[in-house]
Design a protein around this nucleic acid. Structure first.
Length: 483
RNA sequence: GCGACAGUAGUUUAGUGGUAUGAUACGUCCCUGCCACGGACGUGACCCGGGUUCAAAUCCCGGCUGUCGCACCA
């Protein structure tokens, strides 16, 4: 584990200082498990969502998106099993201290296997309840996950989009869980936003992934259930090796685990801060055949970013049973109606992704004397700072001209106050990748300097070329040293 | 949710039963000729409620929020 890593608390303080994240409603003391996001954070989060959508939906032919509602027909949560657990309470034996869960109606009657009495600790159900319409009693719930809306809308989407198996349905949206004890800043919150895909496959092809080639040479740190049993460390290997050795059992799991890892790494996360870990038999959900988590090396330990479960046809079958609707789709090849299997459901919290990119971007540059947030330009909240070297009208005029032109395309920061060094430092701290400075030579040669955040190196470029060069730098078509 | 500890400007910090020190940040101006220079002025805080007291940010009680440990995370 990295020793010099910022603690999660220090990250929370940094985010507060930079106006990124505040406790929600802080003037009233905040509310545990809820956060508000400030100006630069909303830019970063929007960028994360945009890049996620581009990678998982826009650039693919096999995945389409929906946006389900947060409050929906409560029967959905009955079918999914979420409501049933609403009547569960969490209890602890007064005698042997062993925890258990029992139904509310059993309070006072049920006893522990050691014959001890139970002490009620609290409700186990984590759904937020509300009323629809003004009448009390019309109970509805704030969705505790986004997945069920995809299952409920599955057939409509499949038919309207003329999708053929295998295909996926993606969604980005908020979900709510009344966690007993929110902890670790944005890691566990009561309101959170998820980016999720349910990927559907023909039951006959659950081990046939047409995209497998893309990931065969991709290397990952792998911690199988077997290795955990033997208390061994993760092993780094390619997906091909993992499949050949039957460590990862299905092609789809290998494909999605590697693909999700690649998404993070492509956006600047450090590859070795990730590993994949297989659920042990004990922690496997009743509906899942096999589950692998993509984990990240947080300062408070290796923690789950995405759980990628093979949920089989469990959810669709549940909705077929409860809604009494036929949710099967017609398969041309076999001329039969089938209920597809969900072999993988990459499901990632925006807040957790935000933390990953922040931790991997955060650099305390002792030489410079300030923090340098090395965010990928695509994620950076501000793409460039535009500065007149000093506050003189002739320089301001040129700088404002550049700013007004470029801000049609990019989020920029114009700043004329303080020393140039201070403005560079401020830009470094919120991750602005490039700074453009207008100096007295600009009056004569129609050029400006452009400064690179990561190296502090500068290059002189024509104002006329600025837009094109900035675009190429942000899109990584060229490197700064190529200018 | 239970237990321990804590809560002073955005951040950080001094301090006391008589409303508060400094740093940093931020703003305006001066200075500026490429990496948080310097100067002047300014903005800005005792978590909330109740009690004790002539007087509470300070003592006591409760709450909220946070950190750590336990539990929980279907």
């Amino acid at each position: 584990m990295a020793d010099n890593k910022l603690s999660i608390e220090e990250m929370a303080i940094f985010c507060k200082k930079k106006g990124l994240v505040y406790p929600s409603g802080e003037i009233y003391g905040g509310l545990s498990g809820f956060f508000d996001f400030g100006p630069n954070c909303v830019e970063i989060r929007n960028n994360i969502k945009k890049e996620w959508w581009r990678f998982h939906v826009q650039e693919r032919e096999d995945i389409v998106g929906i946006d389900g509602s947060i409050i929906t027909n409560p029967k959905i949560w009955q079918a999914s099993g979420h409501v049933a657990s609403f009547t569960d309470v969490y209890v602890k034996c007064r005698k042997c201290k062993k925890p258990n869960k029992i139904d509310k109606s059993e309070i006072g009657k049920a006893r522990c296997e050691c014959s001890g009495e139970y002490e009620v600790i609290g409700d186990l159900n984590l759904m937020f309840k509300t009323n629809v319409g003004p009448v009390e009693g019309s109970t509805a719930y704030l969705r505790p996950e986004t997945a069920q809306l995809i299952f409920a809308d599955f057939k409509l989407v499949a038919e309207n989009s003329r999708l053929k198996l295998p295909f996926g349905i993606a969604q980005i949206g908020k979900a709510f869980r009344n966690e007993i004890s929110p902890r670790d800043f944005l890691f566990r919150t009561r309101e959170f936003e998820m980016m999720e895909i349910e990927y559907f496959v023909h039951p006959k092809n659950i081990n046939k992934c047409p995209f497998l080639k893309q990931v065969l040479n991709h290397k990952m740190n792998i911690l199988s259930a077997e290795l955990q049993k033997k208390h061994k460390k993760p092993v780094k290997m390619t997906m091909k090796q993992a499949l050949d050795k039957k460590i990862i059992k299905t092609e789809w799991h290998a494909y999605w685990l590697a693909t999700e890892h690649k998404w993070f790494v492509n956006l600047g996360a450090k590859p070795d801060n990730f590993r994949i870990r297989q659920h042990t038999k004990q922690e496997l959900s009743h509906y899942a055949l096999d589950t692998w988590d993509l984990e990240y090396n947080f300062p408070f330990g290796w923690k789950e970013l995405e759980g990628i479960a093979n949920r089989t046809d469990f959810d669709l079958q549940q909705h077929i049973k409860h809604s009494k609707k036929d949710l099967s789709i017609f398969d041309q090849e076999t001329n039969k109606k089938i209920v597809p299997h969900v072999v993988a459901e990459p499901s990632l919290g925006v807040g957790r992704a935000f933390l990953v990119f922040m931790f991997d971007a955060y650099n305390d540059d002792k030489k410079r004397g300030n923090i340098v947030l090395k965010l990928d330009p695509k994620l950076a909240p501000v793409k460039a700072g535009i500065f007149p070297l000093i506050s003189k009208p002739e320089l301001i005029k040129i700088a404002r001209g550049i700013y007004n032109e470029l801000k049609k395309t990019y989020n920029l920061n114009y700043d004329k106050s303080g020393s140039i060094g201070r403005r560079y430092a401020r830009s470094d701290e919120i991750g602005t990748p490039f700074c453009i400075t207008v100096d007295f030579d600009s009056l004569k040669d129609k050029s400006v300097t452009i400064r690179d955040r990561d190296t502090t190196k500068q290059a002189r470029i024509k104002i006329a070329d600025l837009k094109d060069i900035l675009r190429k730098l942000i899109d990584k078509e060229i490197r700064f040293s190529d200018i």
